[in-house]
Design a protein around this nucleic acid. Structure first.
Length: 586
RNA sequence: GGCCCCAUAGCUCAGUUGGAUAGAGCGCAGGAUUCCUAAUCCUGAGGCCGAUGGUUCAAAUCCAUCUGGGGUCACCA
């Protein structure tokens, strides 16, 4: 149950039953009514703006209207009391019985509590990472990988049918460079002295084993093949090896994709897929031959005025038309992108999300244009831009140069600071905000990392369980038994506040999904952990509030139910962020 | 120059999509363990929400302009 939806329905019923509403000539719009946690919990458990929204059309004073609506809840056993405050807020304090019933529900649902039908089973494609298969993942890919993965987890939990997808850029000239680099390593493996790796080729050691494998399999045969044939073989092997490496890297970050889509397949069979996509666009009237205006500002030195086949994307929201076919007749990268979108569209996704780095910001409008032109506006396409991550080590910026191969790999980061720390840090910030990532901070002072705070809360829950079994050896802490408890003993303000925090979870899931903001989950987890730690510490000053009480078995079981519920929600949220929920931390 | 993102406490950031007295962590000042894990908690100080106008019962939030910071621009992929 989502308590806010529950109360919203009750409020609307109450409003519709009001005499003044029934007889009103004005059009009453109930959509703008909000029912949410109040900013300050001292105001109550649940707050609504209902009176302020309806006051004007009804020609009433908001506070007076709020009083009228409050009347409807006067005899309701679920509502302890209502207050009207500020400009006309209607605040509800819910009864202990209401919260106790909710707790039963949370215990029964366990880690499924909060799962919703918000997405109504709609098919969503989340494309993220999509790093070029020319080397290991580097640290720059980290944020997009984590944000995309967590977003997909979140949407899945919120009732969407989600596919996590990786677009392999295995068709362009950088793949030719990769193949040439591997060929050099192959010759090296055959005993040839290759000297310094020429500029323009990939110098990294990670290509050495690829060359060795080729040498072992083919011996001298590759070298004597015609170049075209040889390069095809090398490309296949090189791409496969790079993707294996990338998959391993991603796995170390706990990221697993459902679909790996190869750009090369779009170019296969005489580029059938791309030709079909361009034909489709042409049929719909979006393609023409013409010249693009020169770029504004400083004119590049090698600028040439030439005629090309263009996509009239300016008709569908773009700033400038985009080339589909180069002057030499080959297809642009963008043409493949159109075909790729079309492929996804035909696979039936009603929503597509691209998670990109901020450096791809210029690409957003043309992707949206493609979506409009190809799907006729049927598909909702959103681009989530992750701002860049700045690396520091003890306050000093970390410099990286790609050319010398001296960049930090994703694997190094994971190994140095730990998978969960990396993931949570990446999620503990709105993705539209730039992120400073300091190795020293995340490792040396580990308490600076909020993931430990949340994980400790989960571990503490289980510690209480262990303690309970020690003190009351035959107590039953199975989920079924805890859910079947009589929770009437849970009446302390602090206990009810904790349940109220749990009550926010389903609402948070829906809100985070709607906004496509997985960071909200991380922040909620921190809040919930804080509520648990606060409550736990109250047991220091007030021993009667401790979870485990060997003189009151009934009360202990009820409180363990609460602990179990908190642990379940923490575990559920942590699994959305893709991090572990440890049973103990020592 | 065009487009995109950002600006909130000394620092790093949230802010429930327009609501009440703007919150948290770190740092600073003070306090809490014979006790279910002190990897925790409590109290205090700290704010012209970059600037100016506009929209309305209500603006950190929406609109316009400006200032400052980051990203990006063309047969690359």
């Amino acid at each position: 149950m989502n308590v806010f939806k529950d109360l919203e329905a009750r409020i609307k019923t109450a409003v519709e039953a009001l005499e003044i509403v029934k007889t009103s000539e004005a059009s009453i719009n109930l959509d703008r009514i909000t029912v949410e946690p109040p900013r300050d919990s001292s105001h109550g458990d649940i707050a609504s703006n209902v009176a302020m929204v309806l006051a004007k059309p009804l020609g009433m004073n908001p506070r007076a209207l709020a009083d009228m609506i409050a009347e409807a809840f006067a005899g309701d056993p679920d509502v302890l009391h209502t207050t009207v405050a500020g400009p006309g807020f209607l605040n509800f304090r819910m009864s202990a019985g209401y919260w106790q019933r909710l707790l039963v529900e949370i215990c029964e649902a366990g880690t499924d509590y909060g799962r919703s039908d918000f997405g109504a089973g709609r098919k969503v494609n989340v494309e993220f990472v999509s790093a070029n298969p020319t080397g290991p993942m580097h640290v720059g890919h980290c944020r997009g990988a984590v944000v995309g993965d967590a977003l997909a987890n979140l949407l899945s939990f919120a009732g969407y049918a989600v596919d996590k997808e990786y677009y392999i850029n295995d068709a362009g000239s950088q793949i030719d460079v990769l193949a040439s680099s591997v060929y050099l390593r192959y010759r090296e493996a055959l005993g040839e002295s290759i000297g310094e790796i020429p500029a323009g080729l990939y110098p990294g050691d990670y290509l050495v084993p690829v060359g060795q494998a080729l040498a072992a399999e083919y011996g001298q045969r590759l070298a004597s093949m015609p170049e075209a044939e040889r390069m095809e073989i090398i490309k296949d092997r090189a791409i496969a090896a790079m993707m294996d490496m990338i998959r391993d890297d991603l796995k170390a970050l706990n990221v697993v994709h459902d679909v790996f889509f190869s750009e090369r397949t779009l170019h296969a069979d005489g580029a059938t897929a791309i030709r079909r996509a361009i034909n489709d666009l042409t049929y719909k009237g979006h393609v023409y031959k013409g010249k693009l205006p020169p770029p504004k500002g400083q004119l590049p030195e090698d600028w040439e005025d030439r005629e090309q086949t263009l996509f009239r994307s300016t008709d569908v929201g773009d700033d400038i038309d985009r080339p589909l076919i180069k002057s030499d007749g080959s297809y642009t990268y963008f043409a493949a992108d159109v075909a790729y979108f079309r492929d996804k569209f035909e696979r039936g996704y009603s929503e597509m999300i691209y998670v990109l780095g901020a450096d791809h910001g210029g690409y957003v409008k043309r992707l949206e244009a493609v979506a409009r032109a190809v799907s006729g506006g049927q598909t909702k396409l959103t681009v989530l831009l992750c701002q860049l991550v700045k690396l520091y080590r003890g306050g000093e910026p970390v410099r990286m140069s790609k050319r010398s191969g001296d960049f930090i790999t994703l694997r190094e980061v994971v190994e140095e600071v730990g998978r969960d720390s990396v993931r949570f840090m990446m999620l503990y910030r709105k993705s539209s905000e730039p992120l400073d990532f300091d190795f020293a901070k995340v490792t040396e002072q580990s308490k600076d990392n909020p993931v430990f705070y949340v994980q400790y809360a989960h571990a503490r829950c289980h510690s209480v369980m262990r303690q309970a079994v020690e003190v009351i050896p035959d107590i039953d802490i199975s989920a079924e038994t805890l859910a079947a408890q009589d929770f009437a003993g849970l009446t302390d303000e602090s206990e009810l506040a904790l349940i109220a925090k749990l009550a926010e979870y389903p609402r948070l899931i829906d809100a985070a999904s709607a906004a496509q903001e997985p960071h909200k989950v991380a922040f909620y987890l921190y809040d919930l952990a804080s509520a648990l730690h606060t409550h736990w510490n109250r047991g220091r000053d007030t021993p009667e509030l401790r979870f485990v009480n060997d003189k009151n078995r009934q009360l202990t079981s009820a409180r363990l139910g609460l602990v179990y519920a908190v642990a379940s929600v923490l575990k559920s949220g942590l699994s959305i962020t893709g991090t572990d929920a440890p049973l103990e931390m020592r």
